[in-house]
């Protein structure tokens, strides 16, 4: 289960095998949605997805060998980025729509019923278009998602909210191995070396947008929590509180 020295093809197989399922919302509210019904559906979905995200993280090679403290730090730091990259990947073939669940597909105009949400929807749709334009491959997606989890909390400054990792070297080794797998996959595309380097950069530059959207989304979710009109589930609340926004 050690990741150091794992061949790139095996890393790709393990990452693809770790993918969580696409969920169903089930408790669907009737249209037109209101701020309360929309946020109730989205936060309920996020809470359910978080449970699957934790199971996914535990399948990443090397993750369960990290200390519990480091596992918590990485997940608390990156959870909304991981949810967002998954949402964009699911939505890649549906321009103008975000596929939150098999039975919960929303377009931009529907997001306007929640104050401040259209701005975040627009950013998610724009970044999804970028994924589409780049013709992001499943192998590249699974690498990027794992990189998001390992990168976001790894080199964070020590602030009042985020503590340093116990073993940042172990996280760096995982990150390097997954980066190698991504580079290896791109190298098999038949492109020139320059085109390969460019694609590596193009894909990794997407992560800056994902971090930005997560920060915006976290602020938005915090504002929803403060309004106290939508009850948030335990796990989602814990993950939000880890960011202790002001």
């Amino acid at each position: 289960s050690s990741i150091a020295g794992m061949p790139p093809d095996q890393v790709l197989l393990v990452l693809q095998g770790a993918e969580p399922p696409i969920l169903c919302a089930r408790q669907k509210m009737s249209r037109p949605y209101t701020e309360v019904t929309m946020m109730a559906m989205l936060t309920s979905m996020a809470d359910k997805e978080l449970v699957h995200m934790i199971a996914w993280a535990k399948k990443l090679p090397g993750f369960v060998q990290l200390s519990l403290h480091d596992q918590v730090q990485l997940l608390e730091s990156a959870w909304l980025e991981v949810l967002m990259i998954g949402l964009m990947w699911r939505s890649i073939h549906c321009p103008g729509k975000l596929i939150f669940a098999q039975d919960l597909i929303l377009d931009r105009d529907e997001s306007t019923c929640v104050e401040g949400m259209a701005e975040i929807f627009d950013m998610l749709l724009a970044t999804t278009s970028r994924f589409r334009l780049l013709k992001l491959k499943p192998e590249e997606f699974v690498c990027l998602k794992a990189i998001v989890l390992l990168n976001s909390g790894a080199f964070a400054f020590c602030t009042s909210t985020m503590e340093p990792l116990h073993d940042s070297t172990a996280v760096q080794i995982m990150l390097d191995t997954i980066t190698d797998a991504l580079v290896h996959y791109i190298s098999q595309s038949g492109c020139t070396v320059q085109q390969q380097s460019r694609r590596q950069a193009q894909l990794l530059l997407l992560l800056t947008h994902i971090r930005h959207m997560s920060n915006k989304g976290m602020e938005h979710l915090y504002s929803i929590k403060c309004k106290n009109t939508v009850p948030l589930y335990d796990l989602l609340l814990e993950m939000l509180d880890a960011h202790r926004l002001h």
Binding site: V51, I54, L75, E76, M239
Partner: peptide, 13 residues
């Protein structure tokens, strides 16, 4: 982070 710890420490089925 009680729930998170609980999910991290339970064995997969």
């Amino acid at each position: 982070h009680t729930k998170l710890l609980q999910l991290l420490t339970t064995k997969p089925e």
